[in-house]
């Protein structure tokens, strides 16, 4: 028998609640949990983008020079990569969001029935998984196209 001590335990652990760590790790629970995790991350990223976008466009009120210097930020390599991420996250968030609208209205989940071993939950069926894969695929295609436009000739 051996012992590995961990004295960093604090009183919060007594509640056993995982807190934000509970959703930060998307592994172990399948594609639906990955989709849940990505939907949140992309949502947060788009929120940051939205705030930045409002700040960027509001620079117009300071005159054309201020606007042009703000636009120059998006013409850098870092700016292009950021915009490609915006394209990818908005595509995934939209497509997966449409899937979730149907799912959370009880559509495409199958019907309740008598469960038989090995218990494959009907709510985690291939319709749902396909929806997630399609959202990921479309996000990749959109990012690829965006990259070609931004980094291509005249980009």
């Amino acid at each position: 028998m051996g012992t590995v001590s961990n004295n960093k335990e604090n009183n919060n652990m007594n509640s056993g609640r995982e807190g934000i760590r509970g959703w930060l790790n998307p592994t172990r629970y399948g594609w639906e949990r990955v989709s849940y995790w990505l939907q949140r991350l992309t949502g947060l990223f788009l929120l940051v983008y939205f705030v930045g976008h409002v700040y960027e466009t509001s620079s117009l009120t300071n005159g054309v020079d201020a606007w042009n210097s703000m636009l120059e930020l998006t013409q850098t390599i870092g700016g292009h990569i950021f915009l490609i991420l915006v394209i990818g996250t908005s595509t995934f968030h939209t497509v997966n969001g449409i899937r979730l609208i149907f799912t959370e209205s009880g559509k495409g989940l199958g019907k309740p029935g008598r469960p038989d071993y090995p218990y494959n939950p009907s709510s985690l069926n291939y319709t749902q998984k396909s929806g997630i894969w399609i959202a990921l695929l479309l996000a990749c295609i959109a990012m690829l196209y965006g990259g070609m436009v931004l980094f291509g000739e005249g980009g």
Partner: peptide, 15 residues
Amino acid sequence: HFAGSCSVVCPKGVD
């Protein structure tokens, strides 16, 4: 928000 993890771990197929 339909993470589906509850159905993954359910040992009785309750879904």
